[in-house]
Write a protein that binds this DNA or RNA. Structure first.
Length: 724
DNA sequence: GCCTTATGTCATGGC
DNA sequence: CCGCCATGACATAAG
């Protein structure tokens, strides 16, 4: 039920986002602040009348500080806040992704066929231009899915993509703005690059087919030179623009964070229609120098949607990472999976099926998206082919990354901690977010654990706790009043205190002040259970608090007397001539001497030994509990350290996945380029419907499509080492 | 009335 | 063996 509520809540937020995208402004805060009961309870949960936690937190409810650390509403609270923040952020930082792709579409009029999804595979590779348009479309598709994250963060982080053409004027706009598109593409590509050198190294390590082409950047764009020398036949040196304008500028933390947020948004919404498709405009007919910066960018949600494949699983396309795979051009076996792809993209086989089933029940946006919107979402989705990299970044892992990265970025604040706790299914007493004390040393992740975990202990250090452990307060006074019989030595009080934390640091903490426990270890208690029960009425917590306040200087004598322990009472009743403090704390030799000095009967001796035993055991029990608590604290810290480390590792993993994704794009473009320039003996290009490139330890092999996997070990025609 | 927490006490085992 | 300590288990009070 909770899950459903959360799910619906997120869906509601998504719906709001979608409404904002189509121009309908919806202020959720209005609904929430006006406290319309249904919506408010849907989003914020049941009203306070139904939540126990509000009982403890009637104050300091601002920013969630008032929510009890153990409240089940905590996670919901911060989830709601996070989503609302996302909604609020719609009007400044983040350009809606649906607007993004509208003007980015550019299609070369000479390569109309490139985007035709329903055409057969034989269309491809009639000439180099077609192939390169294949590259374009495919790269666009890949960018559409795999590059979704880049799309979003580039939008959120930059304002360079401000020009948004309406859909009805898109055809005109796309032709008029090709130059602008180039610039925008350049900026886009510059943002998407993580670390080019890392990618290159990875590329080399992954595909040892030859030397890596140099991206010799001209300005902010890069050019890819075709291997004119090594191409066996009528290869042409075609200046190719890189599918992505790579730069060596690493992504800064902010950009990575935005990337992560983009992933989260994409996953949450499962709106996979944000396709910024950067492709190469390497048409031989346009290969003049001025076209090096031109870009063909696919789009979604456009009237030309029918030209683009619509049968791609949006769900998979939403994965912006390693699920993006090598084009089927290089992996014909994958066709057996039956993933529907844009026909020109999948050059190897026409055996395809629809896997829209993957776009299934989990897609909440399908509930909210109107059919036109839904139809547009299918337009530029990307072919998704499972590959060895797919396992690197599964959807669940993306969730984990998002959550943990969120926690990382914000220093494990409480909402992240709650997310982490949900993720880790923490059900132990090691509540990591049990306290968000504003008086904690800091909000950093290191202090969170200790401050939180010590809440149970520190809560005991309210005013009364200070009384119990402080030798200079009522306890000392009580000892003085107790005289030779009651009380412990200051050493014992000190020992008791060192078992716990300094209560002074918890003064002024409202949450902690409201908790009052009796930690008066050294404070003499009632001498008997009957009197203790009597104490509960006269010297109960509230009563004692009042009395303490009233008689700070003059502690109530009767109360002090009644707070003597049973052993004190017994000792007094048995006329033990020395204090229990001496009985307990004296060394055994001195203790024996003390006993020898006085002539005591058997009952007295037995009581004295019992008092000593019990007193020592009481201290031992306190020490034992202190150690236990310290152990728990250390374990908490260890857990937090491990969580932090895990989050860091996941972050790194995500970066690597992004690098791999870019590398794959690069490999794809290079492979397509290579394939496009391959010519048979008669100078004709190889048909992608008949051949494909296969990577092997010996280099890149041109393999016929009908060759099985077993046969693929034997190169059929040619083996071409890619050298650039 | 039940649960949780804090505390004291006892029994037990190790040193 | 004795004393001390540590600790689990239990009881009780209090919130």
């Amino acid at each position: 039920m909770l899950y459903l509520k959360k799910y619906f809540t997120e869906g509601l937020i998504q719906f709001t986002i979608l409404l904002s995208l189509i121009g309908v402004r919806l202020d959720l805060d209005t609904y929430l602040n006006n406290q319309l009961p249904p919506l408010r309870e849907i989003i914020l949960g049941p009203s306070s009348a139904y939540t126990q936690t509000q009982f403890h937190n009637l104050r300091n409810t601002l920013d969630g500080y008032g929510i009890h650390p153990k409240s089940v509403d905590l996670d919901h609270f911060f989830t709601t806040r996070r989503l609302l923040n996302q909604v609020r952020s719609l009007d400044h930082l983040r350009v809606p992704s649906t607007e993004l792709s509208a003007w980015l579409v550019h299609r070369d009029p000479e390569t109309v066929v490139s985007a035709t999804s329903q055409s057969g595979p034989s269309i491809a590779l009639d000439n180099g231009g077609s192939l390169e348009d294949v590259n374009n479309s495919e790269a666009s598709a890949m960018r559409g899915a795999g590059g979704a994250s880049e799309t979003t963060y580039s939008l959120s982080g930059e304002d360079s993509l401000g020009a948004v053409a309406p859909e009805d004027s898109q055809e005109q706009g796309e032709r008029e703005s090709s130059d602008d598109l180039s610039k925008e593409l350049t900026s886009l590509g510059a943002q998407t690059s993580l670390s080019l050198q890392e990618c290159l190294r990875l590329l080399e390590a992954t595909f040892p087919f030859g030397e890596e082409p140099e991206f010799q950047a001209t300005g902010s764009t890069s050019q890819l030179r075709a291997p004119t020398e090594e191409t066996p036949s009528t290869s042409q040196g075609i200046p190719l623009q890189a599918p992505l304008s790579q730069s060596d500028t690493p992504l800064d933390l902010e950009q990575q964070w935005q990337d992560i947020m983009s992933i989260m948004e994409l996953q949450d919404m499962e709106v996979n229609n944000t396709a910024v498709n950067v492709s190469m405009n390497n048409d031989p007919n346009n290969n003049n120098a001025s076209t090096t910066d031109s870009a063909t960018i696919g789009s979604f949600g456009l009237p030309r949607s029918t030209l683009i494949n619509q049968d791609v699983s949006l769900h998979q396309a939403s994965l912006p990472s390693c699920s993006q795979d090598f084009p089927p051009l290089f992996n014909p076996e994958l066709d057996s999976i039956g993933v529907q792809r844009p026909t020109l993209v999948r050059l190897s086989s026409s055996n395809s099926s629809n896997i829209n089933s993957t776009f299934g029940a989990t897609n909440l946006t399908g509930l909210f998206l109107s059919p036109p919107l839904n139809s547009t979402t299918n337009l530029t989705t990307t072919p998704v082919v499972p590959d060895p990299f797919s396992s690197l970044l599964e959807e669940s892992m993306l969730d984990e990354i998002s959550l943990l990265d969120l926690a990382m970025e914000e220093g494990f604040s409480q909402d992240q901690a709650s997310q982490l706790e949900d993720e880790l299914d923490s059900d132990s007493g090691l509540s990591l977010d049990s306290s968000h004390s504003p008086a904690s040393p800091s909000n950093s992740e290191t202090s969170c654990s200790s401050a939180a975990s010590s809440s149970s202990t520190s809560a005991t250090f309210s005013e009364e706790g200070a009384v119990g452990y402080s030798t200079d307060s009522e306890a000392a006074t009580a000892e003085a009043e107790e005289g030779a019989i009651g009380g412990y030595q200051p050493e014992y009080s000190k020992l008791c205190r060192m078992g716990y934390q300094d209560p002074s640091q918890f003064h002024g903490i409202p949450q902690l002040e409201s908790v009052n426990h009796n930690h008066t270890y050294n404070l003499p208690l009632a001498s008997s259970y009957s009197e203790r029960s009597q104490l509960s009425t006269s010297c109960s917590k509230k009563g004692r608090d009042k009395q303490i306040q009233q008689t700070k200087l003059q502690p109530p004598q009767d109360c002090v007397d009644r707070q003597s322990s049973r052993d004190d009472r017994r000792a007094r009743a048995m006329d033990i001539p020395f204090s229990n403090d001496k009985i307990i704390n004296l060394p055994v030799e001195e203790f024996n001497e003390l006993l020898a000095k006085h002539h005591l009967n058997e009952d007295q001796l037995s009581l004295i030994r019992d008092i000593r035993r019990r007193g020592k055991n009481k201290m031992a029990a306190q020490n034992c509990r202190k150690r236990k608590l310290d152990t728990i604290l250390k374990l908490e810290e260890g857990v937090q350290d491990l969580q932090r480390e895990k989050a860091q590792l996941l972050k790194e993993k995500m970066e690597y996945c992004k690098c791999i994704r870019q590398t794959k794009q690069k490999v794809q473009s290079l492979s397509q380029e290579l394939f496009a320039q391959l010519r048979d003996e008669e100078g004709r290009p190889y048909s992608a419907s008949e051949y494909f490139l296969q990577y092997g330890p010996d280099g890149v092999l041109l393999m016929p499509l009908n060759m099985t996997t077993e046969q693929s070990n034997k190169p059929d025609k040619k083996q071409k080492d890619k050298k650039k």
